[in-house]
Amino acid sequence: MKLNINQDLCSGCRLCENTCAFYHKGLTSPNYSRITICHIGKWALPNITVCLHCKEPECVDACPTGAMYKDLNTETILVKEDLCIGCGLCVDACKFEAVIIHPETQVAFKCDTCNGNFSCSQKCDAKAIYLV
């Protein structure tokens, strides 16, 4: 299963953020979410930022330590946190802005697929985040 998004369908409710943070951390604050919804302009039109696990991931190419890697079984992009040196080259390489260096851990922080469950997609009634 592959994660996909449809920006037009997003209502901006941020239940995905809440679910992601809660799944991983048992807390709900947005800084623990690996998916981000921004509200843009006067009418707060939503914009989703999340890793879509590129076929040819530039973040993986940019990583000097092998921390950012492609799991060949699942074809998803994951981070080995113990190898990450927090250099931020992956952040620069990702044109979708889907990776950050987390301010608390100082290592790369992005969608880890929730063990293949993609919990955000399970709480997206709008079908803006969905699996194909």
Binding site: G12, C13, L45
Partner: peptide, 16 residues
Amino acid sequence: DKNLACYGCPVKCLQK
């Protein structure tokens, strides 16, 4: 034109 929603609400009763 389009549904918008308050925080954490799947009902999305707002309308752009």
